[in-house]
Each structure stands twice: as structure tokens, then as C-alpha cells.
């Protein structure tokens, strides 16, 4: 026998499940997008620090997906895993940045191409064909609006009155 309230509760339950599914789905898409964009950056960029930033971006995508799954299943597994991801990412960043500094001391720049002598034997060497000239816009740094005016440096006028 079905009580009158049961139907409503059931409908609310179904709506809740659909909402949770919806949420999970959306989070997984955003996580996948972050992961994919990070992959593109890691493969394409040449600056070691930017490459590392892209790896961190991929980790963020994974974290989002894990937390979404955790919420969906109603347990803490996803969040605990993300906490460990944070810890490992911190270690990784410390070590990697120390190594970047050492590599910079040897090579004088952060370019990945400097280390291409470590490539496989049968791979051909990468040579920069054309390096685009720096844009004008690249050298335009943001400036602060000038605050106040420069006082005139009239040395003859005494700044302070000697006698009141």
C-alpha cells in the first residue's frame, strides 16, 4: 500500500538522482577540458616553467573529476585522494623548481631545446627555422596612473619657515 506522501518523496528522490548525475556529468566535462588544454600546453610550449604549469593544470582537471565522483558515490574517497594529490604536487613542485634552477645555471636559459642532445639516436635535431620578432604589444607593460605632481625643486626657497 502506498501512502500519499510516498509518491512525492519518490519523485523528489528521482529528481535528486538526476541532479546528481547531471552535476557529475558537467564536472567530468570540465575536468576533461582542463586536462586536454593542459596536455596541449605541455606538448607545445618550450619554456620549462610553463610546461610545469600545464602539468599542474592537468592535475587540477583530475582533481575536479575525482571530487565529482566522490560526491556522486557519497563517500570520502575522492576528496582524500585529492588531498594526497596536493601533497605530491607540492613535493613535485619543490624538486622540479630546484632542478630548473640547476638546469638554468648550466644552460643560461629555460629553453627545453637546450637538452635535446638527450633525444633518441635516430631522431633528427630540431632547429628553429624562424623565430618571430617580438611584438610591440609584448613590450608594453601596464603602467600605473600618475598620482600627484612632481614638486618643483626650487632650492632657494626655504622649505621650512625658520621663524614662526
Amino acid at each position: 500500500m502506498v501512502a500519499p506522501g510516498d509518491g512525492k518523496k519518490l519523485r523528489e528522490g528521482v529528481a535528486m538522482v538526476e541532479y546528481e548525475l547531471h552535476l557529475l556529468h558537467n564536472y567530468l566535462i570540465v575536468g576533461a577540458l582542463l586536462f586536454g588544454i593542459g596536455t596541449i600546453g605541455f606538448l607545445a610550449r618550450r619554456n620549462m616553467i610553463v610546461m610545469f604549469l600545464c602539468v599542474e593544470m592537468m592535475l587540477q582537471g583530475v582533481s575536479l573529476s575525482l571530487v565529482a565522483w566522490g560526491r556522486y558515490h557519497g563517500n570520502w574517497g575522492g576528496q582524500v585522494l585529492v588531498i594526497f594529490i596536493l601533497a605530491v604536487a607540492a613535493c613535485e613542485a619543490g624538486i622540479a623548481l630546484a632542478m630548473f634552477l640547476m638546469l638554468y645555471r648550466r644552460s643560461g636559459n629555460l629553453d627545453m631545446i637546450f637538452w635535446q642532445s638527450l633525444r633518441e639516436e635516430n631522431q633528427s635535431e630540431t632547429v628553429d627555422v624562424e623565430i618571430p620578432e617580438p611584438d610591440e604589444a609584448d613590450h608594453q607593460w601596464p603602467i600605473l596612473t600618475p598620482a600627484g605632481i612632481e614638486p618643483d625643486h626650487d632650492t632657494e626657497k626655504p622649505l621650512h619657515r625658520s621663524h614662526v
Partner: peptide
């Protein structure tokens, strides 16, 4: 510490931009 002058020439070029964009698209 490492790049006090701001931009360098290697920030203006990429490895295989088309291939990496394809990789990302396929992954997504």
C-alpha cells in the same frame, strides 16, 4: 631568478603546435 628580462625567444615558438592541438582534441 631565471628570466629577469621577461620574454625570451623560446617563448615565441612552439613544438609542433598543430600536432599537439590534435592530441589534445583526441584526448578530450
Amino acid at each position: 631568478l631565471a628570466q629577469p628580462e621577461g620574454q625570451s625567444h623560446y617563448d615565441r615558438v612552439c613544438w609542433e603546435p598543430l600536432l599537439s592541438a590534435c592530441t589534445g582534441a583526441v584526448l578530450i
